[in-house]
Computed example of a mutant assay.
Amino acid sequence: MNTLSKEDAIFFLDAIGSTYSPNTTYRFNKRSPYMEYLKDRNSEQCRRFLRVGEVLLVLVKNERKAIVLESRWGIYEDIITLEDLGVRLGLKSNESVRYLQKKCERELAKQLAGHFDLLPKPKKKASEYVDKKELDEDWYCRGLY
């Protein structure tokens, strides 16, 4: 991770829609921003995303997970659909591929956040919350559960 700056890490976390990003915005049922970046492969955002993604692939020790990320992020070629990737890997459903992708992204995000000290912090001290439900919601939304 020596070749990545803290700004690159935050950019990447934002691009994959990670809750570990300090800029987290809660997007329910929306595509990750990187999908928009990849529409124009010549854009600065796309080139930056691909460069950071390529560096991060080295951290993925499982070959299957690396194939999923490289194919879904379009690192070396165009993005491969969930269905085509599922067939290639012998997975039974699109959701299996999506689950594997999101799991890998979370693992990488957690490593990045830990390395650059970006782990989310609760909004208030535990004693300042009105009730346990409010505390649980804040911690859950920030990925601390």
Score class of each variant (00 low, 15 high):
Lys65Val: 00
Leu50Arg: 13
Leu38Ile: 06
Val68Arg: 05
Glu44Met: 02
Asn29Thr: 04
Cys46Tyr: 01
Glu70His: 08
Asp84Ile: 00
Ser43Glu: 15
Tyr34Cys: 06
Tyr26Arg: 06
Arg31Tyr: 11
Lys30Ala: 12
Phe28Asn: 08
Ile80Glu: 06
Val55His: 10
Arg51Lys: 11
Ile79Tyr: 00
Leu38Met: 14
Cys46Trp: 07
Asp40Ser: 11
Leu57Lys: 10
Trp73Leu: 10
Glu77Pro: 00
Val55Tyr: 01
Ile67Gln: 02
Glu77Asp: 14
Cys46Phe: 13
Leu59Ile: 10
Asp40Tyr: 03
Glu63Arg: 14
Gly74Ser: 01
Leu69Gly: 09
Gln45Pro: 04
Ile80Trp: 01
Lys61Thr: 09
Arg41Thr: 10
Ile80Asp: 00
Leu57Ser: 13
Val60Ile: 14
Glu77Trp: 01
Pro33Phe: 09
Arg31Lys: 15
Asn62Phe: 08
Lys30Asp: 02
Pro33His: 10
Val68Ile: 15
Ile67Tyr: 02
Leu69Ser: 00
Gln45Glu: 13
Leu82Trp: 12
Val52Asp: 04
Lys30Tyr: 07
Pro33Asp: 07
Cys46Ala: 15
Tyr34Met: 03
Thr81Cys: 09
Val52Ile: 15
Arg27Phe: 13
Asn62Cys: 10
Arg41Asn: 08
Arg64Trp: 06
Glu63Ile: 05
Leu59Tyr: 06
Arg41Glu: 11
Met35Cys: 10
Arg27Pro: 00
Asp78Val: 06
Leu69Gln: 05
Glu63Gly: 07
Arg51Asn: 12
Met35Asn: 00
Val52Gln: 08
Lys30Leu: 12
Arg72Ala: 01
Glu70Asp: 07
Asp78Phe: 12
Glu54Asn: 14
Glu83Lys: 14
Leu56Val: 03
Val68Phe: 04
Leu50Phe: 01
Arg51Thr: 14
Leu82Phe: 15
Arg48Tyr: 03
Arg51Ser: 09
Ser32His: 13
Glu70Trp: 03
Arg64Pro: 02
Leu82Cys: 12
Gly74Asp: 02
Gly53Leu: 00
Tyr26Phe: 14
Ile79Pro: 04
Glu36Tyr: 11
Glu83Cys: 06
Ala66Thr: 02
Leu59Asp: 06
Glu36Gln: 03
Met35His: 02
Ile75His: 07
Arg47Ser: 13
Val55Phe: 01
Leu38Asn: 04
Ser32Tyr: 10
Arg64Gly: 08
Tyr76Leu: 01
Arg27Asp: 09
Met35Phe: 04
Leu59Pro: 04
Met35Pro: 01
Glu36Asp: 09
Asp84Glu: 15
Glu44Asp: 15
Ser71Val: 03
Arg51Ala: 14
Glu83Phe: 11
Glu54Val: 09
Glu36Ala: 11
Glu70Ala: 09
Arg41Gly: 01
Asn29Arg: 10
Val58Gly: 07
Tyr34Val: 06
Asp40Lys: 04
Tyr37Gly: 08
Arg64Ala: 10
Phe49Asn: 01
Arg47Val: 13
Trp73Lys: 07
Gln45Leu: 08
Trp73Pro: 08
Gln45Lys: 15
Asp78Asn: 14
Tyr76Lys: 14
Glu63Leu: 09
Asp78Ala: 11
Leu56Thr: 01
Phe28Glu: 12
Asp78Tyr: 04
Leu50His: 05
Glu70Val: 00
Ile67Ala: 04
Tyr76Gly: 12
Asn29Leu: 08
Arg27Ala: 13
Leu50Trp: 03
Val52Phe: 02
Lys65Phe: 11
Pro33Ala: 09
Glu83Ile: 08
Glu77Gly: 12
